[in-house]
Amino acid sequence: MSNLPISKCLSWFGVSALAISVVFGFDLSIAAAAADHAAESTVNTFISDEKGGGGKGAAFVFWIFALSSLGGAIFVITRNNMVTAVMGMVGTFFAIAGLYLMLYASFLAVMQVLVYAGAIMVLFVFVIMILNRPEDEPWVMHGILGKGVAALGLLYLFKRLAGILWEVKDVQPLVLDKAALNVDVVLNHSDPALAAGAVEAITRTYEFGSVEGVGYTLFSKYLFPFEAVSIVLLVAVVGAIAIARPTEEESAEDAAEAEAAKEAS
């Protein structure tokens, strides 16, 4: 952090605060309208307990995950040290996995941790260890004016995006109760013997969002996309090896360097 002095940080945050107040213009009407709406109509609670009331514990957990994912994301793009940026990214991915759990996608939460925090971030760390070169000027925009313009533009983008997405809550969301989370699935439903009534249907109960549920969808209706993804992964692996492999001159140079190093020692 030695190359990011406090005065620079303060000016950055000052410009951001100014931009927030200009763009939003103390326009808290969205929040006020939302509060009115919730007060007068039946509350469209998304995360709720069995009685249909808003779950304060769930809300607490949501805010923790939301703030940690957002904080981790901002941490990532403001760090000059690459390894700390990757660590912030891992934290963000864990928080996003928690959000997936709140959205009843437990299998996807596990995949998020395994694939992103496990595989992709390890790949990033490897590449950082290969590169290992500090940069001179990390930001594209210079000075307080450039950063102010950038912050204003980004805040405007966020305002437009959030303005559209915030309206979505007026659509009545479904509140899944615990009974709806366990689904009976009739397997082998295309079996003609089943249609004839000769065999009894095999029913299995599984939790919503589990491996079984996602797998059943993936291997029945979305079999072709699933197989296409495997082709994409194969092509990506072959392409990555073909791109990153040193050319013949480079490997000859490396061999010469290694030989010279051996002789020198």
Binding site: N44, T45, A58, L70, L161, A162
Partner: peptide
Amino acid sequence: SVFYDITVSHFLVLAAAL
């Protein structure tokens, strides 16, 4: 109630912020 009643929009606006 904006803070207590988590709706779909909360997740969507968080996604917009990210």
